[in-house]
Computed example of a mutant assay.
Amino acid sequence: MKAIVLNRETESKIELADLPVPQLGTDQVRVQIKAAALNHRDEWCRQGLYPNLKDGVILGSDGAGIVSEVAHQGLNEWLGREVIINPALNWGESEKVQSKDFQILGMPGHGTLTEFVNVDFSRIFPKPSFMSWEEAAALPLGGLTAFRALMVQGGLQKGEKVLVTGFGGGVAQFAVQYALAKGGEVFVSSSSDDKIASALQLGVKKGFNYKNEDWAEAALQKTGGFDLIIDSAMGDTINNLIHVVKPGGRIVFYGATKGNPDGFNARKVFWNQIKLIGSTMGSDKDFAEMLSFVNQNKIRPLVDRVFSLEEAEKAFDRMKAGQQLGKIVIKI
């Protein structure tokens, strides 16, 4: 079978390999992948910035396809069904936090950028019937991360003002669509006026270009402050978010692409009783509830561009450049 694997000995750090189809393990199903989607973690693996890297591992966490084989007769009901894959493994028993054994499909274990992948049957769910293969492949990791950050950790309520930072990325686009479906008053920030224009077409109230030094003050004057902010950057931008969140508001961050902040306005945080909340992926319960919410509201993932397996390097380069609006998909 063809697959995109990590190979740090090559110039591009990834390669298209021909691998044997692995044998099924206990309670596993084999999914013939129709489409897979990239996440930033795939590019971070390529750059050597992810822990526990191993050459030869098939990359990719997101995938959708058809169950082509099952480990035993008790799983026959899944044969031939169109499914999406929950890439969160070993979350554990607590809904509050993942276990120490938590992993994500695609590193250190094999992932979805391949013709076939074996997963435990508990990881598969019926593909939303209204989605294309490309849309379905775009949903799992980003959709789950956004749902937990916004609904579980953030506790979004109808009518609240929400700021989603960095609109254009996969998680951010889901957070925007979920917040709109929930009845939030949604705003975005981005470094691209074109991406802000796309957000407005979705129903966002207003966007702010964070390249403008006074964007936070302009946002505060325009909105009066936000009840909830969903962020993936952190770094020194956190003080801008502290400035524009309402007293008693919540800032949920699911990443720190700009690293740790050099400065931190602790006094304003405690005086205004602001809640800073971390969020990572989501539990099995979160995934099931996310999928139900998506089906109920007919939310379609934004697909940026579709590549073939042979064009994987171009797809990775596009993600590295940050050019995408929505998810980058590889059709198998």
Score class of each variant (00 low, 15 high):
residue 12 S to C: 12
residue 78 W to G: 00
residue 185 E to T: 15
residue 28 Q to S: 13
residue 6 L to P: 15
residue 160 E to F: 12
residue 207 G to L: 15
residue 168 G to V: 04
residue 40 H to E: 09
residue 33 I to E: 01
residue 291 L to F: 01
residue 218 A to H: 14
residue 110 H to C: 02
residue 180 L to V: 10
residue 51 P to L: 00
residue 236 D to S: 02
residue 288 A to N: 04
residue 167 F to E: 15
residue 127 K to G: 03
residue 121 F to E: 08
residue 298 K to Q: 12
residue 174 F to Y: 05
residue 154 G to P: 04
residue 55 D to R: 04
residue 32 Q to K: 14
residue 139 L to E: 10
residue 139 L to V: 05
residue 75 L to P: 14
residue 98 Q to K: 13
residue 253 F to D: 00
residue 6 L to I: 07
residue 287 F to N: 01
residue 139 L to I: 07
residue 278 G to I: 05
residue 157 Q to E: 09
residue 303 V to F: 08
residue 319 M to T: 10
residue 225 G to W: 02
residue 33 I to D: 01
residue 3 A to V: 13
residue 329 V to N: 10
residue 326 G to N: 07
residue 294 V to S: 06
residue 239 N to C: 03
residue 272 N to H: 12
residue 197 A to F: 14
residue 69 E to T: 04
residue 85 I to K: 06
residue 54 K to Y: 08
residue 95 E to H: 02
residue 30 R to L: 05
residue 313 E to Y: 12
residue 6 L to V: 06
residue 146 A to P: 04
residue 255 G to C: 01
residue 203 G to W: 08
residue 129 S to D: 05
residue 203 G to Y: 15
residue 146 A to Q: 12
residue 199 A to G: 03
residue 150 L to R: 13
residue 95 E to K: 03
residue 330 I to M: 13
residue 50 Y to S: 04
residue 31 V to P: 00
residue 117 V to I: 00
residue 112 T to S: 01
residue 249 G to W: 06
residue 326 G to V: 02
residue 282 G to E: 11
residue 228 L to P: 02
residue 289 E to C: 13
residue 274 I to V: 11
residue 102 F to N: 04
residue 303 V to E: 10
residue 316 F to G: 01
residue 220 L to Y: 07
residue 114 T to F: 10
residue 213 E to D: 09
residue 212 N to K: 11
residue 299 I to N: 08
